[in-house]
Amino acid sequence: MSEAALLDPLLLARLATLPLRARRVVEGVLTGLHRSRHQGQAVEFAEHKEYAPGDEIRHIDWRAYARIDKYYVKNYELETNLRAWVVLDASASMGYGRRPPGAARPPVTKLDYAKVLGAALAYLLVRQGDSAGLLVAGSPMTQTPAAGELSVAEPARDADGARLPPAVRRCLPPRSSAAHLAGLMDVLEKLRPAGATDLAGAVDFLAEKTHRRSSVFVLSDLFDPSPRALASLSRLRHRRCEVAVFHVLDPDELEFPFEDPTEFLGMEGPERLEAHPRSVREGYLEEIRAFLASTRRQLRDADIEYVSAPTGGAPDRLLLDFLFRRRAAAARRGRGG
């Protein structure tokens, strides 16, 4: 199987094990999520400096003294242990994915795509020693869950057994161990779209739970009827969290390619609408574009990074562009700071 095929999100959808998918994606991507601003006692040697009164005695490089007969201390780069959350919208609307005409393979849903992104991000984080957590947003399911699937018929509980709010289906606090990563991948693997979108509720929960200066990666279609969702994200910014929103949308939702008379069924509610697509296309596209523009504007105003993530594109390319932008931004901050 060629590397290009591996990068094809539709091809990845056939792969059984998520961690593999995540790793394959991740290994194609450069690392280097962050650099700490702080220099001091370092985990990694950075440079020597002549001893000055006040420096830590334990940092004196005795070998250098033996050779040079002068006292030098070692400077280390202190790599902060980043705490990151992956907030994954697993509401019913994320289950949309159109099967291409004539294709035999199952469609790639927005949730599938978001899972890939989420898994890749988590892998990256843990691999480089950071902590990655997972928050699955989505109100409890109403249908009987299939065997092996996560049931949300009863209130969800976190790892400590505490009851989770209705907007949160699953919560895995950030850890940096490999075992934690495996468990996170497992959760992602078994995740199914269900329930109404309540991103605001999930983000509010996260805002209470997370440490300051955490990174939050939101993977959602943002089809939240409540206008509080974006306001809740702004609240995370107030807690000095770095927020990035990956706006996952299906190409159908962006292009509205329907032609035949269609009865459109809502995925999170009882909406039903029979219409001839030609008569509603223009209006729909107007609405969706306005929605996208408004979302971008509000997130920009809140200093939240917005990443458009249509499921028709390659997730590795998406992440690559994202990480490059991050590194460039970090470099600019280092030069400036």
Binding site: Y96, L265, M267, E268, E271, L273, G283, E287
Partner: peptide, 9 residues
Amino acid sequence: VAFAAVEFI
């Protein structure tokens, strides 16, 4: 057709 963006329609 189950369509997530039916609200926009």
